[in-house]
Each structure stands twice: as C-alpha cells, then as structure tokens.
Design a protein around this nucleic acid. Structure first.
Lengths: 341, 341
DNA sequence: TTGTAAGCGTTATCAT
DNA sequence: ATGATAACGCTTACAA
C-alpha cells in the first residue's frame, strides 16, 4: 500500500505491540524463538504497514554482507561470460549477490580495487585468470579476504583454485595431430607471465621432446590471449618456421588470430595447415572451418569454484586446495592429414 | 604493517589526539574544514596504524551505497557481455560498483530479486532486455528505484531507456536485399512479447507493405532470441514458404539457428538463400559465411545508459527519456543476388 | 518465549 | 577549525 517508505522494525514493533527484538526474530523465522501465532501476526502487520528490511543495517551489525566479488579481466571475452554466468547463478542459490568488476590494467589500480572491495566488506573474491603474483592478490591476502582463483593456478599455493588440466589438454591435442600424421607441430603459447600460458607450453615441450628434434616443434609466444596477439605471433611463426603443418594455439582467440593470418596468405585450413584452439568458446563451431579445440568444462569450473569459495567462507582456516578439471577433445574440421608441400 | 584489522576512525582519533569527527573530515578531504597540517598528520597516522575505512558503516549512515544493479537475462549471450562491460566501466569511473544479477525465469522470482536489491539499498537499476510490463519493473517502480532500460524501449514511457533505432535497422536491411534483387524476403521475428521483437516486426511490415503482396514477405515468429528458437522457426518457415530467397533474422543468434537448418538441408548461403542477422555479435564475422548483419552501437549504448542512469541518480525528478541510437549496416558474405530456382 | 540494552563505525548537526 | 553528541536500523547477549 505504502510507497517507498522508511518503515523500520521499530514501527512494526509499535504497531504489533511487541519489542523490536521480537520483530527481528519473528521476521527472520528463528526457530523456536517466537510463538507461531505471534510470528504470523507480526508478519501480517509488517506487510500491512509496508515494512522493507534494510540489509545494509543488518550487514553493518552482523558484519556479513553476503557479497561475493567476481573479478574478471574482460567481460566481452566470450570465454568469461559463461563462467561468470555459472558463478553468479551458483552464488545466488546460496544467497550471495555478485559484485562484478573488471580488472584494471594498472597493477596499483588493481590493488586499490581490492581495497575498495574489502572496504565494502565483501565476503570474498573470485578472481578469473589472474596470476598469484598479482599485486591485487597480494592485497587480498593482506586484507584476509577469502579468495579463489578461477582458470588459473596458484604456483605458490597461496590461493585455492580451480583449473583445467592443461597437461591433459596438450596430450589430447598432440595425440590427435600425431595420429593424423603431423611431424612438425607448432605451439603458439600464451604469455609466459600467465600460469596457463606456461603450463600449456611446458606440457607441450614435455610431450614433444620424445617425438623429434626441437626444431620440428617450435614455440612462439603470443603477447596476450587475444585475437590480435594471435595474428602477430602467427606472422612471426610463419616466417621462422614456414614448414610446420599444424599449429596448436593456446586458446581459441589466438587461434582466430592465426586463422586471420592464414587466410590473408591463402593458406588453406586444414588442407595446408591444421589448426587447433583451446577452450571451445561459444560460436567456434560455426567459424570457417569449424575449429577443432579442447573443451574446458566451464559449468563444472564455475560450480566447483563457487563451492570451494563457499567452503572458504564457512571455514576461515580451510587449507588451500586446487581442483583440476578434465578437458575433452572436440574434433571439428580445422584439422586433417598433412599434405606434402 | 598490521594484518586484517579492526582499526576504526576512533582509534585514529585517539592516536592523533583529535576527535573522531575531525578524522572523518580529514580523511574525506572536506575542503576548508580541516587545517592542512592536521589533515596530513591524520592521514599519516591513519596509514601507520593500518586504518581501513568501513564503507558499509558509511553507507548505513549516509544511505548512499554507490551500488548499481545490472540485471541481465543471460551473461553467456555474447551480445550482453560487451554491454555489461561498457556499463561496468562507465559506472566505476563514477565510483559506482556493479552488482550483476541474471534475470530469473519466474516473474515472482524476478520481483523478489528487485526487492532484495532494494533491500540492499542499491542506488538504482540498469535492466537489459526486459519489457516494461515485467513484474520486476513494477517492483522497481513501487520501490522508487531509479531505473534505466537498456536495449528495450518502454512503450508506456514509464522508464527511461536507451535503444537501437529498429526502424532504421529494418530500412537498411530491406534496402540492401531489394538492391540485390530479392522480391520474396522473410522475417524471422523475435518473440512478440518483446518490444524489440515487435518493433522490428512492425517496421518490417511497414517497409514491405508497398513492395508487394504480403505472401512474398512472410513473417515467422521465433519463440526466443536464441539459436535453437531460430532453428525451430526456420523449419516452420521453410515449410510454409519454401520460395523465399532471403531471410532477415531478428538477431544474430536466431540467424545462426537458421543457418544450422539451411546447412542441414543443403541450402547454400548466399547462393540459394541470403541471410541477414542483427547486432553484429562478436565472432559473427568469422562464421561460414561471414554474416551480413546490422551493428548496434554497443559502446554508445552502454555509455549513454550509464550517463542517463547517473542523471537519474542525481535528480530524482528527472523526466523519463528515451535515447535512440543509430545502427550501421555491415555487409559481409551471407547475402547476394537471388538465383532463379 | 519475550524484553532490555548495548553497540556496530560512520557522519551530520550543532555548538564552541 | 574542531569538538560533542546523536543517530542511522538492526541483531544479540543477557535478563526476566
């Protein structure tokens, strides 16, 4: 009935002829603490006079905001959308709301951001694709914020994390290309500043060591996990090692950049060059040619991350842990047998 | 120096030998209210003893949370990622943090969600792709929450909004197809429950009225703005009107669904059928064939929406307004001249 | 089961 | 320019 009001618990108490504390208990339905009939009466009156709880006041008092901060590098990246989606959904089911912020470029800004979030008393942080060396994460640790890393490991084991099994990813890719008959396979790695970049690169080195001379398995580092960095890296690689017959890109965006360059040079995929991505982002099944890639179990990742996060909230001294998720290989049309050239 | 602390303004005041109120003023840098030297001293001490402001307490006191709620149907939709990205960035520049929530299916849940957000005293709502008839928006109005609709209009003019000029979009598409020589053009419309769906559909009807018999410009409604709804609608359309030579889909996802069906039937694009989407989502330039579409100015949209939102926050009685953004046509390879059949 | 009273940390108003 | 005081709305010991 009432419009946007300032009806407080005290008003309800007055109207119901009870003490504010009783209203508080009744409204929160604290079991066995208030008689059923009184509770019903209080609830009725609360609605009648248009009471609306003030969660900020409650947060202030209880020091519980039930707010999770999700820190994501770039919401326009099609990989992160689904992850944030899964996180937000899982958290909300547990009555947590999600404060979503995008990682600033500047390390000091990142650090300040964490302090701003801590100042808002967020319950904790879910950080996508950040390195544990990040100033941001240092700040989180200093402030004692429960933190879970998503899609990046914590080499120093300072943070709990949920990651893809990159060794398995590489194993799947290399086995596939080998089975097709490829003997010279390049890897366009992610930036070595990134644990994911390093992990896939090292796994690639390990896997290919036994297979032949290093020159047949060149590695070219991309400056970032982006389409344009993929283009740049592809140009360098093709100049350095024009004879490779297959390229494994550290992620799908890099693969798209590689594809741009192959196209502009008239190198056909997969006839002249096989190409494999990583992540199975939305829509890569529709590009030309449909991209062979490795699917990261995104749903599991967000679910597990949310769950791990909640466990950390529930138990401040929960030991750091890493959950490793199994990827699956997705064969499409960007890979094929190598042709003699 | 200190670990996660509970140092309050009062502690700083004690350490500095001043009154808490003075510390508060000094720390917020209230101009001309505290002597420069005292301020410097207080700031020094605050840092020294590890004071960290408690924003929840401040919010509680001032009733200003500086929190914007962004309500989005589906974060995994590649169109919304960039919009949310733009909103979050623009808002943060103005010192607002973004609470991102995904729209529940159930109308009552949506309503409850708004009440939950209001209970957290969010400054206002930015709502993506919701109809003004939505229970959610009714609730927002009841609660007096400043609200801006993004990418949907408010037919009843109850809410401010930022939208694409759908008439212009349709004009661009129809003109393009006509210029290519198409005489039988189908429109797969968005759900008629959506203002965008209706707007594009009506514009299509208006545009084509003069061009020929209605039978040559059939409209098939998709149940949702999704790939699978596009598939279903395409199947019905092809059965109803197998002779159309071009299809204009109400958005890119629907177009992708149409493409799936055309492929499975061996209908070539654009040789046998021209296809146009809408929105120019990320990656649609890479599908096979690259999709001709209409680009919605996403950056402008989020900027304008954020700005309009801030204006509403600043002035509670700001009149409702609509900002209409001009789309641009993006010609790629999914459209061509019709071939005789 | 219910009432009492204190207090969370900050800021705004008023007085000095 | 600074200090004193009260108040924001709620929850939680503790007492009854």
């Amino acid at each position: 009935m009432s419009t946007s009001s300032h009806v407080t618990i005290e008003d309800v108490a007055r109207a119901a002829g009870v003490h504010p504390a009783t209203v508080s208990r009744a409204l929160r339905g604290i079991a066995g603490k208030v008689s059923a009939e009184k509770r019903a009466e209080i609830q009725r009156i609360a609605i009648e006079i248009g009471y609306q709880p003030n969660f900020v006041a409650a947060s202030f008092r209880t020091k519980q905001t039930n707010l999770a901060a999700i820190v994501v590098p770039d919401l326009s990246n099609p990989l992160f959308g689904p992850i944030v989606q899964g996180l937000e959904r899982a958290l909300r089911q547990q009555h947590l709301l999600s404060l979503v912020v995008q990682t600033p470029e500047e390390p000091t800004e990142r650090r300040d951001l964490v302090h701003a979030l801590a100042g808002r008393q967020v319950s904790g942080l879910l950080v996508l694709a950040a390195e544990s060396s990040d100033l941001m994460l240092q700040a989180a640790k200093e402030r004692g914020l429960p933190t879970v890393l998503v899609n990046r490991g914590s080499g120093d084991r300072h943070f709990s994390s949920v990651v893809n099994d990159d060794r398995e990813s590489v194993r799947l890719v290399v086995a596939h290309l080998q089975a097709l008959g490829h003997c010279a396979i390049a890897h366009i790695s992610g930036p070595s500043a990134s644990s994911t970049g390093r992990a896939r690169r090292e796994a690639f080195e390990d896997r290919t060591r036994a297979l032949g001379p290093k020159a047949d398995f060149p590695i070219q580092e991309a400056a970032a996990f982006t389409r344009s960095a993929g283009q740049a890296a592809a140009r360098v690689l093709l100049k350095r090692r024009p004879t490779v017959t297959a390229i494994f890109a550290a992620n799908d965006l890099i693969a798209l950049g590689v594809l741009d360059v192959l196209r502009e040079r008239g190198i056909r995929v997969p006839a002249d060059m096989s190409l494999v991505g990583h992540n199975d982002m939305p829509l890569v099944d529709l590009i030309d040619p449909p991209l062979t890639t490795v699917r990261v179990p995104v749903e599991q990742m967000s679910e597990q991350a949310a769950q791990l996060f909640l466990e950390h909230l529930a138990r401040a001294d929960l030991p750091v842990s890493t959950r490793v998720l199994m990827p699956t290989f997705v064969e499409r049309l960007s890979t094929g047998r190598p042709t003699r050239r």
